[in-house]
């Protein structure tokens, strides 16, 4: 499977990914995917600047990311997809990305978000997106590090933010 991991992390490429995940799996290609980031030349330049630490970094829109991951070119690679928000994770699935698990990484505090843990803050729209992902039969995990357990995380979200998870 070309895409071996999809992480939703609003800090995008950062220390945990470059050091811990890169050491645990042989990542050939990190694809950062979020429409706004892909259209911001400054962020694209900077994200690509860390490529020497892995082998290849791309910054793509959701549509281009799914197109690439479903192409023959992707077959040869071990791809780590890094979406920014839960909404991006849902958009990937709706655009046709085939993956059984979506992992929640850091979701740092943003305006109108509520705390689930020290590393996960979700907005109402984020919870609604995760609910749809869950209802599509996709397993949601919450692993900052590769060593974290891959337990189903939706019940925690439902329990912590019931007003939005309904």
């Amino acid at each position: 499977m070309p895409v071996f991991h999809v992480r939703m992390d609003n800090r995008l490429i950062h220390g945990q990914i470059l050091v811990s995940w890169n050491a645990a799996f042989k990542i050939d290609h990190i694809i950062v995917t979020n429409d706004k980031v892909a259209n911001d030349p400054l962020q694209v330049t900077l994200l690509k600047a860390v490529a020497p630490l892995t082998s290849k970094v791309s910054v793509l829109t959701i549509k281009d990311c799914v197109e690439y991951c479903n192409s023959p070119e992707a077959e040869k690679e071990n791809i780590f997809v890094l979406a920014k928000f839960p909404e991006d994770g849902l958009a990937l699935l709706e655009a046709g990305l085939k993956i059984p698990v979506l992992n929640l990484g850091n979701q740092a505090f943003v305006r109108n978000s509520q705390k689930i843990s020290n590393t996960v803050f979700l907005t109402e729209s984020g919870v609604k997106a995760l609910k749809k992902i869950h209802e599509m039969g996709i397993r949601i995990t919450c692993r900052m590090m590769p060593s974290d357990p891959d337990t189903e995380y939706w019940p925690t979200i439902e329990k912590t933010l019931p007003q939005w998870a309904k």
């Binding site: 490429i13 470059l18 900077l46």
Partner: peptide
Amino acid sequence: DVFGASPFNASARLTMT
């Protein structure tokens, strides 16, 4: 501290602008 990590990314974005 670390190249490519969040402290670097944030500092770099400010410096570039």
